[in-house]
Design a binder for these strands. Structure first.
Lengths: 326, 326
DNA sequence: CTGAAAGCGCTTACAG
DNA sequence: CTGAAAGCGCTTACAG
């Protein structure tokens, strides 16, 4: 079936293309349209099943009303991260929808690809949201996107480059909050359990934890800095830890499980986010993930629409949530 | 910054726009390009930071290489369905990416909206995947989309209208499979636990269950047809059920929890999908959700590219998965 | 091997 | 209140 164009609608209604366009887009109150003309154009459009060409409109207006999302990948939505991915999509979808934008997940880029080629196909997007903390660590990406002629906002983490728009939780404050909660409960041997990736984020979280210990007059014992691998139980036992700050919710579940299994009494607190599952009922420090992402989308749309946001960085604090009662 | 067009690249390289276009799109082997020209054009493009306009290209070619997804909504990604939503996105993203398509989540439509208005803005998509079983039940939607001039594929459920492309699990076969497993274990009082929505799907699941009971020579006792509300415990007890087929994984968790809490011995089997959490370690009948969605995306892309798929419906069987060991 | 020209389907000043 | 015309940035026959 060949496309029904505005030309066909205009012919059918017996008006010019310009008039049809104006009648269809109920705008331009400065130039009124006679009700009968509008009626005829509307009828013609309905009768013919007219659907405006988004491409033509985008070409003309320079806007697609579409946000590109960069950083989802084939394993971004994998099972261990399902709650994380779903919260992100929820926040993004809601924020974009509120302002009349669609959301395009950009495919064709996998972690460890050379990011310099990505500019060739960023789709028909008005701006870009970069949400993957793994790939944000790659300075080549920031460099390539810095040359892209449309707005870019980094969410959750951000490259070190200055002048970049970024929205993220305050990982250092979260680390301090978590450690303070354990200190207040009387603990003195508090471990920090992480894994050797998400380096930037985990480092900031560890930094806040270390700050809190230092403020409490405690040395940071390197034996308390633990990796969540298959020797965790042994290391936990050797460390003499009575409590642990865990760098994310998965590590926390693992750590609590290992401690229970080996009969190690351990007060665990997890870095997590609103909407995560918390199956073991642990204490947590959480940030409002959907809201963080929504805020990033809002900043991006502001930039697209030429409204200069007040600040280049928005930082969201963590909240302490005690272990839920049984 | 004003846009860098192919015109600017051509000027910079000292060639015509047509030549620049041909050099940039390494195609058209019939018409060769001199290596030195290509070199100069590539250099100019890189130097200027040229990014082709997707809108112009789409207008010219009539293709955006973008799949629209219709049916996500503000609560589609909500916590109770996080695993479901994430699996869907995983399958969709992978399948689209493999064939060089992006994925656009279409906003601006909420359940219970009148779907006749949606055609006005289906974005710049080449085709549509409808993935929400809730809204697929609305015949106005199928009617409106039937008039949309591009391919549409329904996934997971499908409107009753004939001639529609649809990809879904075989809910009736799944119901039979689940009931047969319980019958084989010697049960004679087998409940079916559901909720009063997802009517079409739950009805088919119940139908398969009823078929299996009938084949086993059992009457379908209406007292075994249960609703998972706050009177479930009482109804379960009155029904004399020793086993239950649960219409989805959430209902199954709830039912198993209620039974345990009230000391009702109950063998529970859940309708579920690959990648769901199964925190209670229940027996399940599962379908490969990501694969089902991926298959729907493949059919859609075939239609977009003019390859007529062999069948209009693809039905995926459920597999029985016994309760995982402790 | 290269270039001039048409045309994809809209929107928007501008002139009536 | 309406219409003729320009132009958004590409790609692709077509003619050289």
């Amino acid at each position: 079936m060949s496309r029904v164009t505005i030309q066909a609608v205009a012919d059918q209604a017996g008006v010019s293309v310009s008039t049809a366009s104006r009648a269809l887009n109920r705008v331009n109150t400065r130039l009124p349209i006679s009700p009968s003309t509008r009626q005829r154009v509307d009828d013609a459009a309905r009768r013919l099943g007219y659907v405006p060409s988004g491409a033509a409109r985008a070409m003309r207006t320079g806007r697609t009303r579409t946000l590109g999302v960069f950083g989802t990948s084939s394993n971004f939505f994998a099972q261990v991260r399902a709650a994380f991915a779903a919260q992100i999509m929820a926040g993004l979808f809601a924020a974009a929808g509120r302002r009349g934008y669609h959301v395009t997940l950009l495919t064709g880029f996998e972690q460890d690809d050379d990011p310099s080629g990505i500019m060739a196909d960023l789709g028909m997007t008005d701006g870009l949201l970069v949400i993957n903390r793994d790939i944000q660590a790659d300075p080549r990406l920031a460099n390539a996107l810095g040359r892209w002629p449309r707005p870019v906002v980094y969410a959750l983490d951000h490259p070190e480059a200055a002048g970049v728009y970024a929205t993220a939780p305050d990982d250092r404050q979260g680390g301090r909050l978590a450690a303070d909660a354990l200190l207040a409960a009387g603990h003195r041997r508090i471990a920090f359990v992480s894994r050797p990736y998400f380096a930037g984020i985990f480092d900031r979280r560890r930094g806040g934890y270390a700050d809190a210990l230092a403020d409490a007059g405690l040395d940071v014992d390197p034996r308390l800095d633990l990796i969540a691998d298959d020797r965790l139980a042994q290391r936990l036992a050797e460390s003499g830890a009575t409590a642990a700050v865990c760098a994310n919710e998965g590590i926390a579940d693992q750590t609590a499980g290992v401690a229970a299994e080996h009969g190690i009494g351990l007060d665990v607190i997890a870095f997590s986010f609103d909407g995560a599952a918390n199956p073991k009922g642990l204490a947590q420090v959480t940030h409002p993930l959907a809201e963080v992402i929504g805020s990033a989308a809002d900043v991006l749309i502001d930039l697209i629409e030429g409204k200069q946001p007040r600040r280049k960085r928005r930082i969201f604090p963590y909240r302490y949530e005690p272990a839920p009662g049984p």
